[in-house]
Computed example of a mutant assay.
Amino acid sequence: MASKITFIGAGNMASAIIGGLIDSGVTPSDITATAPRESELAAVRSRLSINTQTDNDAAVSQADVVVLAVKPQIMREVCEALSDSIQQRKPLVISIAAGLDAATIDQWLGGDNALVRCMPNTPSLVGQGASGLYANARVNDAQREMATQLMEAVGIVEWVDEESLLDAVTAVSGSAPAYFFLMLEAMEDAAVKLGLPADTARRLAIQTALGAATMAQQSDKDPATLKQNVMSPGGTTEQAIQHMEDADLRTTIADAMQACAKRAQAMSKELSGH
């Protein structure tokens, strides 16, 4: 990726993406991160050897890609202050802020911008992310590839053709790490009640989750088949799965994801003022 990349914001997600880019071969001197105070930049500059700036306009002036990595609540203030520099430079803009639609961000930046919305998730912090991306009509093929390469630095990338589908992405990957953490928490608690020490229960549950995910990733079989392969008629796994099915776990999961997507839709309206 032979481009100058500026991150507006130097928090955990921005730092994770920057680290992934450097690991994938991007030259640190081609990356700039900004924050309001120098004290917020010292650690990322020391650890990653990138350029840092407290002046957003100066950081954007040479950028081919600008990644908006600030909290949604301050996005309008940041974008409107940047709009003149963005209009002058016309970089590809990538927003990783949840709940703010592309049209609203584009308007705050002065309009007519090539803009990609990205919904990453927290496993990006360990290079195992899953990001959903949407591009507005002004994004060309080369810019689309740049956005893909940027987010592939911390995991897999899936593009959606309709922006509204990012709400579904939020439900299936953006918020979903917490679903699995809940499962691990519940399994650990149950194992302790069965007599295992808590640390043993936790290690076994985490390793089993990792192993199952790795099998699902590497196998050409679907999850239903992989599940069936673990089950023997009349055996222990069948008994456990049947209990989950009787408790209507599938409906609970579907309802939870529906609630997640609905909340994402509501947040978008609240944050954009629509």
Score class of each variant (00 low, 15 high):
Ser175Phe: 03
Gly129Tyr: 01
Ala209Lys: 01
Gly235Ser: 09
Ala176Ile: 06
Ser131Gly: 12
Ala212Val: 04
Gly235Trp: 07
Gly132Ile: 10
Gly174Thr: 09
Asp161His: 04
Glu188Leu: 08
Leu125Gly: 01
Glu145Gly: 00
Asp220His: 06
Met187Phe: 11
Val192Asn: 05
Arg144Trp: 03
Phe181Gly: 03
Thr170Arg: 03
Met146Arg: 03
Ala130Leu: 03
Ser131Glu: 01
Ala153Glu: 00
Ser131Phe: 03
Ala213Gln: 08
Thr208His: 05
Ser232Lys: 10
Thr122Ile: 11
Glu188Gly: 11
Met215Asp: 04
Gln217Lys: 15
Ala142Tyr: 03
Asp167Leu: 10
Ser131His: 08
Met215Phe: 07
Asn121Leu: 01
Leu194Glu: 13
Gly235Leu: 11
Val154Ile: 13
Asp220Tyr: 01
Ala198Val: 10
Ser219Asn: 10
Ser173Glu: 09
Pro233Asp: 09
Glu152Lys: 06
Gln218Arg: 15
Ala153Asp: 00
Val154Arg: 06
Thr148Lys: 13
Leu133Pro: 01
Ala191Thr: 09
Glu163Lys: 13
Thr200Leu: 15
Leu166Val: 00
Met215Ile: 14
Gln128Met: 14
Ala137Cys: 07
Gly235Asn: 06
Ala209Leu: 15
Asp161Glu: 11
Gln239Ser: 15
Asn229His: 10
Gln239Leu: 14
Arg138Leu: 15
Gly174Ala: 10
Met146Asn: 00
Val192Asp: 02
Ala147Asn: 02
Asp141Thr: 11
